[in-house]
Design a protein around this nucleic acid. Structure first.
Lengths: 110, 110
DNA sequence: TGTTTATATATAATAAACTTATATATTTGT
DNA sequence: ACAAATATATAAGTTTATTATATATAAACA
């Protein structure tokens, strides 16, 4: 399990990108996908996920559809148009930041 | 200027690595070095820097020496032994996290 | 059939981390 | 004299994530 501090600032981007790649997903599914794609290294808790989803919805980046599976409610989240643009921007920003930080953190020349 | 959210979780690592590479530095010098190494993309504010320095000192990762340049106090920060080990660990963790996230955020196959 | 485990959503209290604003003081350049 | 650069630092406020808690259905197992 990776040091959690690093999740800060990237959680939102992770969620957006998963929705971009998978069309629509529900919360529980997202946590599972993150664990799968990170080989168990990133464990996304619900206490972190749902506030992020609600915030993204309030900001108009994602929308929800509620469906019933038997008697159980399932809430699907998917990107809006602005959300799709926003996701690309956020992903680019991430890689840009990594490039920049790599300059600083790269092992000093031996 | 890069989206600031990403600084979260990495600021401490940046400071540690700079001290590892430069021996000893003072606060004002650190902000300048970060701006220089990031080509102006990362602007580290004092409100963010000093709490981090004080925390690292309280945790025993860095130590301070105070010197006088004329009448002006200058406070040099440098790594302790545990701080040196800690820095390596933190830098490794960062690159590990980037690798993991790259799997998730990588552009979907065209 | 009863119990545990997995599925599924969500909020509240708390803690950590960063931003913005502010305070203070010296030195250098014009 | 004045402005800009050098230099340290705290406080208030916001954002973001952690931990704990609540609720409920469905599937698996004994």
């Amino acid at each position: 399990m990776i040091a959690n501090d690093l999740l800060k600032g990237t959680l939102r981007t992770i969620v957006l990108k998963l929705l971009a790649d998978n069309g629509r997903m529900y919360g529980y599914e997202i946590t599972g996908k993150v664990e799968e794609l990170s080989a168990g290294k990133i464990k996304l808790t619900f206490g972190a996920l749902y506030p992020v989803l609600h915030k993204l919805e309030a900001d108009g980046h994602i929308r929800t559809e509620t469906e019933y599976i038997g008697k159980r409610v399932r809430k699907y989240y998917s990107l809006t148009e602005t959300g799709r643009t926003w996701t690309e921007k956020k992903v680019d920003e991430f890689f840009d930041y990594v490039n920049t930080l790599t300059h600083i953190l790269n092992p000093s020349p031996a």
